[in-house]
């Protein structure tokens, strides 16, 4: 059995190495979607679904097709095509099953394709030599960390929207500064591994 146990992987992915506050992945949708709590949660769940499924498909592609046939250089193309197809699939499913969420997410749903967190995590799985099980847990936990960050942020922004902020800071700049403060707070989780 590999050395890092699964609970540690989950804790690390959500808190210690949060995908947004520590690895800097998934910023675009993070800043765009996190204005309302309800959309933030829906987006988070969509990302959990896509990220876990993306890992479920890309890991075997790397290990069973790309590596044995010395086609490692096709990783970027194959991974992103898998992700784009998955997102299309999720769109179709959501449109049929939960049309209200589909409407609420709007353009941010197809934008999950360009969410660096999804492709990033798929590649991290390979780079850090995770096993299939570890990779699946890691991607699900990373997506949950992403959702957590999104929800905290939306909560803060909902309150911030009614406060007065210097006009040059309004919108994205103040959002980034709040994100910075949150990142600082998350750095406090550093000792958790012990």
């Amino acid at each position: 059995m590999a050395e890092t146990n699964l609970v540690m992987i989950v804790v690390a992915a959500i808190l210690i190495n949060n995908v947004i506050f520590s690895r800097f992945l998934g910023i675009c949708p993070y800043l765009g979607v996190s204005k309302k709590l309800s959309t933030a949660f829906g987006m988070g769940m969509a990302v959990v679904f896509v990220m876990t499924l993306a890992t479920a498909l890309t890991w075997p592609i790397q290990k069973l097709i790309l590596e044995p046939f010395d086609m490692g250089y096709l990783q970027t193309i194959s991974f992103i095509l898998v992700i784009a197809s998955l997102v299309q699939l999720v769109e179709i499913i959501l449109k049929k099953t939960v049309p209200t969420l589909y409407q609420a997410l709007g353009i941010y749903l197809p934008l999950i394709t360009t969410n660096c967190a999804v492709l990033g995590v798929a590649i991290i799985n390979i780079n850090e030599k995770l096993s299939y099980l570890q990779a699946l847990i890691f991607s699900m936990a990373s997506a949950l960390g992403f959702t957590l960050a999104l929800i905290i942020f939306a909560g803060i922004r909902e309150r911030l929207a009614i406060r007065k902020v210097p006009s040059v800071f309004a919108g994205i700049p103040i959002a980034l500064i709040v994100a910075g403060l949150l990142a600082m707070a998350f750095m406090g989780f550093a000792g958790l591994g012990n």
Partner: peptide, 25 residues
Amino acid sequence: LVFVLPPGAFIGLGFLIAGMNYLER
């Protein structure tokens, strides 16, 4: 140190964009 750490990145970019907004205004 904070400037090369994640918080510094977010805050630095936030100020940079605010600065751009100011210049545009």
